[in-house]
Nucleic acid binder design. Structure first.
Lengths: 361, 361
DNA sequence: TTGAAAGCGCTAACAA
DNA sequence: TTGTTAGCGCTTTCAA
């Protein structure tokens, strides 16, 4: 009397096992179990026997064997720099979109982490070794020689890449316009000394936000105050470090009316330092972030929304399309770049400038 | 004159290609490229030729072929329920630990998402089809019949499982003690009407936090006020809904001195509702979360820290150990459960109870 | 309708 | 020191 446990073995059942159990060949079992896409069909009787046997044996087709034969794993790779101990919300938001998009496309997602961009050349090609059908690269600081070593046999799409690479579609958001609109809005509120705590030099998105900041001033016929653009890492630590250094350099100078940070994480770092000095946001100084990550939403921070989840979803769509084209040897559309719009989010950290004169303590 | 581009083809180079290029057989190439673990060794000359050929061809061993032959993919699976549009910080923190641990162990991580626990029976076995060597299951609400269908051929460890399953190690944190200590501390501050907005019924961790809440009262010789324990989802929405309903039911009754939420996300939902009613935290009412996710850290919320990253890292360690045992057919240590300690985090949302009498508006 | 055979790219035993 | 062979589990022609 076989118990339900009896069928559970350390070894997974193979197609041959199923065939044996059903009294047919392994390939008959294969045909019966798959939709019978091949020329030959199996009889209803055989199919029923095979299905029953498969169920009895808890048969699951082996993914690696199938992957080897099909040259497809139904798995997408997502590579990103994920250093630091602090979780990265920017990544999480994009990841969330990727996961959702992949699920919708019947794909799973394997995550590859980079500790730094120097190791990208060595590691990225090693991911593209058949375990994934395509790769999504969060690439704000991809080395410039990437074009030489990115593998050609695995389709790649990038998100927020800092460079155009032939054959690689890039997804990004309208950073410059987002920054321009927000800073214009701030200028419209009367802010004049707007300190921009920007992202790292070399990150295209960070550069574009600086450009938006500058263009907003130019458009308003204003010159940004000198030394009001800082550059540091896209992290709370970066923001904290940058603003603290700036405040140290500017003792006795007028306190900025507002801080425009190039990311929510940077904004949070700034917020910490400002609060530590007893400054109230937004009564004494306004604070604006960029991204609209969960951090901004939960703290009602004013920010520029990037549709990060959408970027992830779209990346999956574009990638699966490329994979299809790659398989059918079609030339993939040479679409350069997909740009999604940003949106202003007016939270509780942006108000009209203070009337009192405050100086840096 | 071959350009650097010439070697880049749509097709990845195979071992046979390398052998051909080097003028040796494919297996000689294999032996030369791998550490030569087999009996036979290759001559230095052959090895050099093979290595050169491999480099020229940008050869990367195919992971699926290797996986099929070796029965190992060096990939760990991470399965979790990831519904909702809002990113899940609890998941992110554990995930971060898993990623780090996996990187340290030379493994990559594939993420499988469940939309609901009903589909677990169908989907979880389908992940264990050779593409992963082992599975980490975030399983707060695993169906009770899981023992019947969890595959035996793939090692599994669970995190925060709601049940003990033979052969599956579980990692969790000391929820009951964490809740007990925090509530005891709150009672010590003078709080008497502590509203516990708990997690879902059926989640063991949520139950344990309720138990800690109750034991703290019992230990202090106090009876918790009636109808002061709520249960809803582990999310901001759950917290928001639960507390709003409670406030609706208790118009005119005394406002609680404090809210003890079973997660940071729940706490955030409560915070939103309280703020919306013009209540100040902690001046009018204290608020305490659970988890110490990034959300709590960034908002300086009082909370009970669970070492989520550590749970992830340890899960990887235990899992890789199990995988090793599985391979060598050793009986894995029948270690039941690994419990990591929690820690109180006294943030800025917990203060002494208000002196004024406030009622629910 | 069914079975036999080849091959996906690699590893590992066995011969030479 | 090398090449040959077989096989991992599956899919897919091609014959029967």
């Amino acid at each position: 009397m076989p118990s339900s446990k009896a069928q559970r073995s350390r070894r997974a059942a193979t197609l041959a096992d199923v065939g044996r159990e059903a009294g047919v060949s392994a390939m008959a079992a294969s045909v019966a179990l798959n939709g019978a896409t091949t020329s030959s069909r199996v009889s209803d009787d055989t199919r029923a026997r095979v299905l029953a046997a498969a169920q009895r044996l808890r048969y699951r087709p082996n993914a690696t064997a199938r992957g080897l034969a099909d040259r497809r794993m139904n798995t997408l790779g997502l590579a990103a720099l994920l250093g630091g101990d602090e979780p990265n919300l920017y990544f999480l938001e994009v990841f969330n979109g990727v996961i959702k998009g992949a699920a919708a496309a019947g794909q799973t997602v394997t995550v590859f982490t980079l500790d730094n961009w120097a190791q990208a050349q060595q590691r990225i090609p090693s991911f593209c070794d058949g375990r994934i059908d395509g790769l999504i690269l969060l690439a704000p600081e991809l080395p410039v020689d990437a074009v030489d070593w990115l593998p050609e046999h695995t389709p790649v799409v990038s998100v927020h890449s800092n460079q155009e690479i032939a054959g690689i579609a890039n997804l990004e958001s309208d950073d410059e316009v987002g920054a321009f609109r927000m800073v214009s809005h701030m200028l419209g509120l009367g802010h004049r000394r707007i300190l921009h705590v920007g992202g790292p030099t070399g990150a295209l998105g960070a550069d574009r936000r600086v450009q938006g900041y500058l263009r907003a001033h130019a458009d308003a016929g204003l010159a940004p105050p000198p030394d009001h653009v800082l550059r540091d890492a896209f992290s709370a630590e970066g923001g904290s470090r940058a603003i603290e250094a700036w405040l140290g350099r500017h003792r006795g100078a007028p306190l900025p009316d507002a801080v425009f940070a190039a990311s929510d994480a940077i904004a949070l770092g700034c917020m910490e330092r400002l609060s530590a000095r007893g400054l109230r946001v937004p009564a004494d100084i306004s604070l604006v972030g960029f991204d609209d990550t969960l951090l901004a939403r939960s703290s009602h921070m004013a920010t520029v929304r990037q549709p990060l989840g959408q970027l992830g979803r779209r990346a999956v769509e574009v990638l699966t399309e490329r994979i299809g084209a790659h398989r059918s040897k079609t030339t993939a559309g040479t679409q350069r770049s997909i740009v999604l719009p940003t949106e202003m989010v007016l939270g509780q950290t942006l108000a009209a400038p203070r009337s009192a004169a405050l100086t840096v303590a």
